[in-house]
Amino acid sequence: MPLEFEKPIEELEAKIAELEGFAASSGVDLSDELQVLRERLAQLKAETFSNLSRWERVQLARAPGRPTTLDVIGSIMSDFVELSGDRTFGDDAAVVGGLARLEGQSVVVVGHQKGRDTKENIRRNFAMPHPEGYRKAMRLMDLADRFGRPFIAFIDTPGAYPGISAEERGQAWVIAQSIQRMARLRVPAIAVILGEGGSGGALAIGVGNRVLILENAWYSVISPESCAAILWRDAKEAAKAAEALKLTAPDLLSLGIVDRIIPEPDGGAHRNPAAAMAGIRQALLETLAELAHLGPEELFEDRYRRFRGLGQYQN
């Protein structure tokens, strides 16, 4: 299902495909007409995708078919051994993680996991973790520290789950603990925002020495819909809220909240996942190399300095 602003592009693509089919089957030479249409398509794509509003980017970040954490692990890593459970209460399918190899380096990886279809999304609670999900993440952080393996976190959540059971089991407490646990890692820590970076539920695994973000991902203190519901008293004003929140990758880079933008293929990662994966892999390898010369205490101090400097105020 195309997004609203993708429709003209999809229509034109369909028309081109139709003409190509007709030309092939009938033997009529339509190459001039096709050439014109292809040029128009390229122009339309360039216009649409170079002028995306912040709200349109939010929709790309949520587009069906966008690579999920398990897609990325499966594509750019090998020898993945998934590890489950928080050893306290249960296993949260909204958070996945385990051991894997990235270009010969053994790493510990964790991430929010969206479903690829409705059924899986329900099982995974639309990537909205309960406390046990964050406790699983903390277990994996312990593992990374104990075995001196780099820790890689993929962020893609609308937010931590706002429900009775989550509150009863201390949602705020585990998010705070997870932030603290990740901050204390004595190994290289990299966070990659794949799609949605929804508030504290995202930050809980976002305390990296470096924070990378895909070109069309978003990261903020609140979703545009919830922000609109509170400040405009109307969730339908989400587009305005998205503009005000400055939640896109370029916004966040200029504020120093992220360190690097990973480019996406034309039209977003869901239109060409392989190209997006190649970008993620390259960015991770370069970032790991950048951090490789830092010792355990230096890595901690590097992270302290990185987050210590964030915020704007007057004396």
Partner: peptide, 18 residues
């Protein structure tokens, strides 16, 4: 966290914790 400072407010959670 204060919405009007968006992601910068979010970062205060990490900063204070550190």
């Amino acid at each position: 966290a204060r919405m009007q400072e968006a992601a910068l407010s979010l970062m205060q959670m990490a900063k204070t914790t550190l």
